[in-house]
């Protein structure tokens, strides 16, 4: 009897192993070679555990635009993450099914392969673990992963896409999460005018842009540093406070009072097309943001030292603001926001 059980066990092991083996990407589904653009930081380690493949990305893209991810089939990832806006949207706060209002501004989806903290509060450290959140959140898609799997299984073309991407046609939660992350990893923006100039591809800043770049280096770069234009730190910079009682910024995650109302420094890439600005869309225009910095921000115990040590302000003349905005517009990557360019 014992032997039989042992044999069953061994058999099970073998079955499981051969099953796992089939997930190893075959030559028919080649890996996509992601290139780290000049000066960009290393990939998030999670990328190496979920390396994009040709069909993984194809499936992920299909799912990214799939409204069946929401309970009433009206909202997809792409409803809020619109390419023309660097995969953000123009709403003050995100809008889910039935017009339900989320409590934060939709962040852009770009260069996420290089980011180590996701969401305004950095609650997620791996993109694969983020996908479920909008699917189940009441104010977003209000669905469940089993509901999603059920809907996808009813579509024969999804079976084929999963087969191509993963070696068999099982539609699993992890494959949904991984393929969407794979697609998002390929959304790399590094072809703005700024990038061309940095790479000496023959373009030049206008005089005003160059002056703006100077202001940027003097007054902005300590937070918006690196080629991602964010140092990925969390800071309370005294922006108007979200009245939603659920909001606490980063301290909602860490439990550290020092993180109260601190948010991840956002990237400035494609900033021209990601208005409104701030964690719940406090500012309609870049000019409004700069005016706010110039006039003075809200005080707080944990206000970032850069403001605290300078009377809660970043002083900017009207000219400087205009130059700065001209420079920021050189960070727009037209190829990234429009497939037809």
């Amino acid at each position: 009897m014992k032997n039989i059980i042992r044999n069953i066990f061994i058999l099970l092991l073998l079955v499981s192993c051969s099953h796992d083996d089939s997930e190893i990407v075959s030559y028919e589904n080649p890996e996509i070679s992601l290139v780290i653009p000049l000066g960009f930081p290393e990939f998030n380690n999670a990328v190496y555990n979920n390396i994009p493949t040709k069909y993984g990305v194809e499936l992920g893209e299909k799912l990214f635009f799939e409204k069946k991810l929401s309970t009433d089939n009206t909202v997809s990832c792409s409803s809020c993450h619109i390419q023309a806006n660097a995969f953000s949207d123009t709403n003050v706060q995100a809008i889910g099914i039935e017009g339900r209002l989320g409590f934060r501004n939709t962040p852009s989806v770009q260069n996420l392969a290089f980011i180590n903290f996701y969401n305004w509060d950095g609650s997620r450290l791996e993109l694969e673990n983020q996908t479920l959140v909008p699917i189940i959140t009441h104010e977003e898609m209000d669905s469940s992963i089993l509901e999603v799997i059920g809907k996808l299984e009813a579509e024969s073309f999804y079976k084929e896409l999963f087969y191509k991407a993963f070696g068999d046609d099982d539609i699993t939660a992890d494959r949904i999460y991984n393929s969407i992350a794979q697609y998002e990893y390929t959304l790399i923006s590094s072809n703005s005018k700024y990038d061309s100039i940095k790479r000496n591809e023959g373009k030049k800043f206008t005089e005003r842009e160059a002056l703006g770049y100077q202001v940027f280096q003097e007054k902005c770069i300590s937070c918006h540093s690196t080629e991602l234009f964010t140092d990925q730190s969390f800071r309370n910079i005294g922006f108007p406070i979200n009245p939603n009682a659920n909001e606490a910024g980063r301290s909602r995650v860490t439990g550290d009072p020092e993180d109260y109302m601190s948010f991840r420094v956002p990237t400035l890439r494609n900033i021209e097309v990601t208005a409104p600005y701030g964690s719940f869309g406090q500012f309609a225009t870049l000019k409004e943001v700069l005016d706010y910095f110039d006039n003075g921000v809200l005080t707080a115990d944990n206000l970032d030292p850069i403001f605290k040590d300078n009377n809660n302000r970043i002083r900017l003349t009207e000219e400087e603001k205009n130059y700065l905005i001209d420079f920021l517009k050189t960070l727009t990557d037209y190829k990234f926001i429009d497939n037809n360019i």
Partner: peptide, 27 residues
Amino acid sequence: TLDEVSFPSFYATAGANDTQMHWEWGT
């Protein structure tokens, strides 16, 4: 981990409209 696939029954009980024990943002 809000793993509905592994534990559908507990997931459903905890997530029922009159129970609301899912903490979505933290999965």
